[in-house]
């Protein structure tokens, strides 16, 4: 069931069109990713959903509410983690949560929340003394303090080291598992691929595609590569004759076989018949990166 519906959203800044006719729906209980390069219009899109900006065109429904007209009610159902939003330097973590909890009629128990986010021992620490990852977790805690039905998390892991990033990802999954619908804005492929149930791909203000990560990848036909080092000399022709194989390349001792369908099985069967073992075997499949390039004509990574 759709909990967020966006239809033909348009938002301009002066003359520049930031969001140009974007439509998508978010289902209850999923992690929905909004993926695209910096400046693609991702943040503007979610800010319209949050009711922080007034759209120039299109309609938005969030849990049956109009984000502008029903602002007050929406605020109690939607938790927001803003990009680059800090707290006063000297506020203690526990004080901040206690304060924000007081804004809601039926808030979550903030001590419990800190526990779940691994911040239980930081309740008495001043905000300025936290690490980047801890600040990010406080930010998530504040987004969840009002027991929202939907949480919007914008560029959650930007600036975090890889370990903190992975920890944050498992937190987001926990949030989803606790029944909260998550909208995740990101420009990290890996993050979207790993976390999201479905992804909206946005580029230059336009929606390019909405699909599951696997669905997006499968749009880049089913091409894959098998890379290995044969333990005995192998006649390359034997592989080239296979219907699944489109190309065989030699890179020093390595063979790279490109093809479609059940490529791996076809290749290993030939090897087995010839009593050859494939050492250092690797399969490379097209990823979201390839899908993005295929769908937009350019690379996502900056």
């Amino acid at each position: 069931m759709a909990i967020i519906e966006v239809v033909d959203l348009v938002k301009r800044y002066d003359r520049k069109v930031a969001v140009d006719g974007v439509s998508f729906t978010v289902d209850e209980g999923e992690i929905f990713g909004i993926l695209g390069p910096n400046g693609a219009g991702k943040t503007t899109t979610v800010e319209c959903v949050e009711g922080l900006r007034t759209p120039d065109g299109g309609t938005i429904r969030v849990d049956g509410l109009d984000p502008r007209r029903d602002r007050a009610e929406l605020r109690t159902r939607l938790g927001v983690q803003l990009q680059q939003s800090e707290l006063p330097d000297r506020i203690r973590v526990g004080e901040a949560l206690d304060l924000y909890a007081s804004f809601y009629r039926d808030p979550a128990d903030w001590r419990d929340l800190l526990d779940r986010l691994g911040l239980a021992d930081r309740a008495g620490t001043e905000y300025r003394k936290l690490s980047g990852g801890q600040k990010q977790r406080v930010s998530i805690a504040l987004a969840l303090i009002g027991k929202p039905k939907i949480a919007v998390l914008d560029e959650l892991t930007t600036g975090l080291d890889p370990q903190a990033r992975r920890d944050t990802w498992s937190l987001v999954e926990q949030v989803r598992d606790s029944g909260v619908t998550v909208v995740l804005v990101t420009h990290f492929m890996e993050e979207a691929e790993r976390l999201c149930d479905r992804i909206a791909l946005i580029d230059e203000g336009k929606l390019v595609a909405v699909d599951t990560p696997a669905g997006l990848v499968s749009r880049v036909d089913g091409e894959q590569r098998v890379r290995f080092r044969p333990t005995a000399p192998l006649d390359v022709k034997l592989l080239e004759e296979l219907p699944e194989v489109s190309q065989v390349e030699k890179h020093g001792p390595q063979l790279v076989v490109t093809g479609t369908g059940n490529l791996l099985h076809a290749v290993t069967s030939v090897l087995a018949r010839n009593h050859i073992v494939a050492a250092d075997l690797r399969i490379e499949q097209a990823g979201l990166d390839d899908a993005f390039i295929r769908l937009t004509g350019r690379a996502l990574t900056e």
Partner: peptide, 8 residues
């Protein structure tokens, strides 16, 4: 800005 995402 963070305040403006809450009911207050």
């Amino acid at each position: 800005r963070r305040f403006s995402t809450t009911p207050v």
